[in-house]
Design a protein around this nucleic acid. Sequence first.
RNA 1: GCGCCUCUAGCUCAAUUGGCAGAGCAUCGGACUCUUAAUCCGCAGGUUCUGGGUUCAAGUCCCAGGGGGCGUACCA
Length: 474
Amino acid sequence: MGTMMPPYRFEVDATAAELHERFVDLAEGTESDVTVTIAGRLLLRRGQGKLVFGDLRDGTARIQLFAPAATTPDFERFADLNLGDWLGVTGVVMRTKRGELSVRVDGWQLLAEWRHPFPDKWHGVTDTELRYRQRYVDLWVNDESRERLTARSRIVTELRRLLDQRGFMEVETPVLHPIPGGAAARPFSTHHNALDTELYLRIAPELYLKRLVVGGFEKVYEIARVFRNEGLTTRHNPEFTMLELYWAYADYHDCMDLVEQLVSTLAISHAGGTTVELDGRPIDLAPPWRRVSMIELIAEHTGLAVSLDMDRDELAAHAERLGVEVKPFYGVGKLILEIYEKTVEANLWDPVFVIDYPKEVSPLARDHREHAGLVERFEPIVAGRELGNGFTELVDPDEQLARFTAQAADREAGDAEAMPVDHDYVKALEYGLPPTVGLGIGIDRLVMLLTGTGTIRDVILFPTLRPEPGSAPS
RNA sequence: GCGCCUCUAGCUCAAUUGGCAGAGCAUCGGACUCUUAAUCCGCAGGUUCUGGGUUCAAGUCCCAGGGGGCGUACCA
């Protein structure tokens, strides 16, 4: 083909989806009196000698191209186009004798070439590595991928709308943190040259968002990319997206109501109803979701009546019997959490709010108003997966400093994920954080749930992979 | 990090116990004015992931390395 000079712009006045809708009643074998200009990629071509059919797809749908030799300009070259080439086409909208809505190719232009062999037009691409490394190929070839990732975008858009409707304000807080906080996870670290200082990619936006509540932004949220330096699994990607929101004057009961509403509303819009399916099993997302304490769930699933008053070593013995690996710095609270995670969580299927976590493992949550040693915290669990995490916020600066100090001691004792003391955050609390509830929702996992997807990589456009050998910057 | 599985033409996949590396689609050439994964005829297409080893003979068996997947660990 040699050289190609693509145009700098191309005026499109119709999309495939619009044409299918507008000309649904056009009779077989007839032409409309409408001329349109569309653009997209050529995905199939069927030559008939002096007549060529093509399937063009734009961002909305597929539509057939109808190109008779007698009227198609540059017919030889048109018949010779490669699958995958981008085309601009102008022509009359018509329906073939066999009933396929088409655009007759009265004029056409090559907009870009696909210089590689096009993947199998029937089987598409199944090689996961190719699908993830060259997502732009996957998106053209595998309908499910395109639809799933489009759904993700729409879900996030609606989520924003639902929150905006409720008076929440979207904000952006720093990604580079001098002290990584707001979650228990290992951070990625980096270096700022001009300041000559170590910085960390955020593991959560939590502490900055609460500073904003101190500042008078009473209902804020952020759809935040966060980074955790941990393993990759079907449920974990090193960078992922969290919705975090903070809501002044409300507590964790209000917030659970909100989560139920948000998730079930999104399911109705994007999963065709409140019943979704995962691994062939139905899940009913209709509110209300069961709310049950962690200690009660442990009793249900193991018959073991744990309590915060138990002797630490006695509880550790129970834990080990249940297959929990016990580390020396684990206190009673951490042991209870470990037992819950090992014996209960994966067995929960229908949505449930697990509530009232041990204080020891929740350094940012407020003391339970009734039960000493517990905090007012919940996690929505669906299909055995944590969908998020929320709690009535700890507002007392002295208590917060004490909790940070205890965390620092755990760090000394070998807990690499314990939080470091953040004096600047404590200072913010000294200016007064009103009663507030906070929530984090894993957007990736939410999309997995609503689209029935089993691996997080399929809901992330470009999931993290090992760089290809020899791909280092030169 | 550890364990198991996997890697064959551009794509999707075959190849008996270790015995000449194949098909469909795509590409390329030809036929065809209503096709729908068009059809029909023909050509071409390979470092079987890489490097070693065993063997008369290795895609197949063994060792090391690489990519990917799954599990596990880590993961509020």
